[in-house]
Design a protein around this nucleic acid. Structure first.
Lengths: 255, 255
DNA sequence: GAGACGCAACTGGTCTGACCAGTGGACTAG
DNA sequence: CTAGTCCACTGGTCAGACCAGTTGCGTCTC
């Protein structure tokens, strides 16, 4: 046995809860195909013996699975909990099965925002009524006023603008995705953006961009409006994205 | 006391589980602002007395909340469960907080697909390598062969094509959303589409459209490729959308 | 034989009470 | 003032019980 003795490296220990292990086992079985939608899980009491845990633990696991849209339990059902088809249940659950926000890069998130926001504005420029246009212009006024207060007020007014656009686009899914991703992006870069020195200049520039977008919406030029919106997002966020990741963002602009 | 006696209408009764009520109360408090991220929930035993239920029930509620990314419990923490900031935890959970798939119209879902797919293809036409282009063309060949088998095989090959595109677009969020929404759309119209009589003609037409998209990708014309992709989706699905809801879909095409 | 009845055996939902391994603060001995 | 102990808490798990439903089967009546 030659060779130097390797410096002993221990992995950090993390305790995994029993119910979490059960969730994993069942989700794995589903991923492997050993379990298919429409099938039934064994009853809770049967799972107790199979997993060799108490019924409380089994039930906590089932609650997690149910919350994820994987299974559904009904009282008095002589069969066990039902495995749901992939597409049922709340949408978010479906998303989580595949994507975790912490696995996403900032570039992906911003690209997504550019797509969503651009599409919402394109839709808005076609579908808007005159009242809705006036509403959007009103939010621009509010943004101008907010600049003289502080950045938080401006940010709030900005959100109001985007919400108005999303309403006009008549697509709640679009709206939801946009809001969620905006929240994630902001939380990722908030520490950096807070230290921006020339924030007043930034706000004025941003307002100018928004006004251009609204002008394009008024003209009914959805293409130009969407392009402006994407450009604005790029200008606003690109500095936080490392250079090699900016290619997809640029690809979204110059169409 | 005049007036006819109204025909008595009773609401269908649905039993709500105790733990579900707890989840609602806590989520409501969070929505109202009575509870904010960073704050701590009372300990489990304290919640037992406040909600007047057993600890099992409290714990099942906490498991649901934890699975939704709302709170996190740590053993031995002298404070109660921690309320997480909005942007943490799995993304799907965030989505589910806002959007339920059963509240969405088919039009919204298809519009979303048109946006996502168009964007993915636009990105792909800019970012693709020659190998990836060859890969996509290979999936076209597979689609052509699948037509001679049956509709399920064709559908599978179609999925493979879109997955290839999504990979090239280098955006897992885009990919995930697209997959989820495609699944939902298919489950909504699968019963209708299965009865299509001239399915072979449809498949050939779809293949032709895909080929055109790939051709545009090869040419690097992202705009044309995206437009074609949206048009294809519209042609494919619009018949299932009631006429008044088609406006947003058309607005997405003629840019 | 056919149908109504009732019982027994299940299901999931809830409760009670207990034990354990951690954590953190208060208290105490040096 | 520090080091050590101790204790009161936390969440995680367990065992066993009861209830209200549902299902199915056997029985009992017509």
């Amino acid at each position: 046995m030659a060779g130097r003795i390797q410096p002993l490296r221990f992995e950090p220990v993390q305790t995994v809860r029993a119910y979490q292990r059960i969730v994993e086992q069942i989700e794995d079985a589903l991923a492997r195909g050993d379990l298919a939608p429409g099938q039934r899980l064994p009853s809770e009491r049967e799972l107790v013996t199979q997993f060799a845990v108490s019924r409380s633990t089994v039930r906590e696991a089932l609650r997690v699975l149910e919350s994820n849209g994987v299974v559904r339990s009904r009282p008095g059902d002589p069969n066990g909990p039902e495995i749901l088809p992939f597409s049922q249940g709340p949408l978010r659950k479906q998303m989580t099965r595949l994507a975790r926000v912490d696995e996403l890069t900032l570039s992906e998130l911003i690209a997504f925002r550019m797509i969503m926001d651009g599409a919402a504005i394109q839709l808005a420029s076609r579908l808007r009524t005159d009242e809705q246009l006036a509403e959007m212009e009103q939010t621009l006024v509010a943004m101008r006023e907010a600049i003289d207060i502080d950045f938080a007020a401006f940010s709030e007014a900005d959100v109001a603008f985007h919400e108005a656009v999303a309403r006009v686009s008549r697509n709640s899914l679009l709206q939801t995705c946009n809001e969620v991703v905006r929240g994630v992006v902001l939380s990722l870069i908030s520490d950096k953006i807070a230290h921006a020195t020339n924030s007043r200049a930034l706000m004025l520039e941003s307002l100018q961009h928004h006004a251009e977008v609204v002008e394009a919406i008024r003209a009914g030029d959805g293409h130009a409006a969407a392009r402006l919106a994407r450009q604005n997002l790029y200008d606003y966020y690109a500095t936080y994205v490392p250079e090699p990741d900016r290619d997809p963002l640029r690809a979204l602009i110059d169409d």
